[in-house]
Design a protein around this nucleic acid. Structure first.
Lengths: 321, 321
DNA sequence: CTGTTAGCGCATTCAT
DNA sequence: ATGAATGCGCTAACAG
């Protein structure tokens, strides 16, 4: 910076002001300074600036999984929104274990980011609170309960599950199985939504906790359920719905004729499977945008907690017309 | 730090030494210092340390796409390898345009990372060279040509294409279409590999540049090719192979009986499609590990360029048995 | 608009 | 083992 200053024949302070767009700098001098800076390839030292300013103008997004298309789609939505707010986004990947997750969150916070958004239900409340003591945190997705000090935005899982059940019931299905291998909050909420909706229709709820074999394939415990006459499945998310479709394919079960399938998330997978998957859509673009807005408000000093719930909607495709 | 020092009844310098594991600190005092640091929740200020030490012990991974499972799988492989080397990894997402890409690369470099690995063929050579002037760069994937000053690790695309063609030819196919919508280096290399292999088998090469409609679906220009009697397709990557499978499904073309399909990358998609996709596997775990090793060597001062080429192998599944 | 001063949190050196 | 001093590159406050 001293170099730029001397070459432009001004003071170091003026260079600082000019480069940051301070209005109190004459247009001509600013022009010259910017010119010189470019010439000698000067770039402000972000770390030094952050050390002094006590903020980085950067936010982190931490996601549990790079494999689940829904997660990466949400991350992309957050990025888009952040970009519009002149915030640079750093991604980190938590790898599905709580220890990893904590390490990653701290690694991000160590960079003194202005805030982080967590896209995962693998982060326990205590971990989130610890993080929130270091920087504003907003969570996209559902946590066990409202966590003090952090904002959240998620979709109404109970309503989403009801959309799925209503759709299947309206199509004449009465033996509707719920497939759900997740003990975490979003999974539980969808399960409860399913149970409530089934009750509302006077139908008997039946839940199957699937698990994956060593090769990552769905264990064939669906066979028993199908033998019991189930002709429709509402799965906890698109990944599990795709597992069900795969199982059906491998066992010559016709979808949707013998078995209708509904997923959750409306991720890329829903468009990729054949037959295409009917799925509950979470408004991820809106949710990402709101997450960024909430983060900005927090950075700006808001201290009450906001918990936003967005309405899902059903996207009907071939797997459950 | 001053706080820790006074509480532990030692000097600030000693705290610094103790926390960084300097051998010249007595075991008992170190113990006490670490203890106190933990008690009051002290964490070293990474930015200040980096400012002083001129390195961050962090590397960046920049990837063009979060949607292409192969890319995220490579990123995960790099992360795993980096973790073993005690390096913390930051991800950034380039969003498929060259401008975005450059912005992201610079955003990462502005953090004074010790190095970056680029997982993308969207970064033009000049951009990579500019980046390499700021920090060590290694590229995973193929660039137009060997770029001065950066290391690269990729698979042998020509050999991979030949594996696919050989397999199809051995299964009795002679009308093998190549589907390839990518004008970028890896795409070109696979195309050339296809052409060479077809020539070697005395077969006529035929290439179709697919494009996507507004809804992201593959445009139906496959129809013509199939009418011409093609009974096998080798696609440039799994995404395009999945497009072909989708097309086949939507047009009642039986795979593999009427049309055999081979993809490239052996990503998650290959296991997800039905029928499961035969695909050329890139050894991404090895490639990621090597990328990290090369980066460490660069950080350590190596200045010659390394360009590594790994051997692909074919994974046979149902779409082309 | 200038130029000086102070300090962000740390690592490092050196004399003690 | 100490503790004072220096500087990493920058911003901010202030008197000119």
């Amino acid at each position: 910076m001293v170099d730029v200053a001397s070459r432009a024949g001004v003071s170091k302070s003026l260079v600082s002001l000019a480069l940051r767009g301070d209005p109190g700098v004459g247009a001509a001098t600013r022009e010259r300074i910017v010119q010189v800076a470019e010439e000698i390839g000067y770039r402000p030292h972000v770390l030094a600036r952050a050390l002094r300013e006590r903020r980085t103008r950067r936010v982190g997004v931490i996601l549990a999984s790079l494999d689940n298309p829904y997660h990466t789609e949400v991350a992309a939505a957050v990025e888009d929104a952040a970009e519009k707010a002149q915030l640079s986004v750093l991604l980190a990947h938590g790898k599905r274990t709580s220890g990893q997750m904590e390490e990653r969150i701290n690694a991000l916070l160590d960079l003194n980011l202005d805030g982080i958004v967590v896209v995962s239900s693998w982060a326990p409340p205590e971990m989130l609170q610890a993080a929130a003591r270091r920087a504003p945190v907003v969570m996209i997705g559902r946590s066990t309960e409202a966590v003090d000090g952090i904002d959240s935005v998620n979709n109404d899982d109970e309503a989403g599950a009801a959309l799925a059940v209503d759709h299947l019931a309206a199509a004449g299905h009465s033996k509707i199985l719920h497939v759900n291998s997740s003990p975490r909050p979003a999974g539980l909420a969808r399960r409860q939504g399913y149970e409530a909706a089934m009750r509302a229709h006077g139908l008997e709820a039946h839940i199957r906790v699937t698990s994956r074999g060593p090769d990552g394939a769905l264990e064939p415990d669906l066979a028993a359920a199908l033998a019991e006459g189930y002709d429709a499945v509402f799965a906890r998310n698109d990944v599990e719905a795709a597992d069900v479709l795969d199982y059906a394919w491998d066992h010559d079960i016709a979808v949707p004729d013998e078995l209708a399938v509904v997923g959750y998330d409306d991720s890329m997978l829903a468009r990729r499977t054949r037959p295409r998957l009917t799925s509950v859509h979470q408004p991820r673009a809106d949710m990402g945008a709101r997450a960024v807005e909430l983060l900005l408000e927090r950075i700006d000093g808001r201290s009450e907690d906001y918990h936003e719930v967005h309405a899902p909607r059903l996207v009907v495709r071939e797997s459950a017309p």
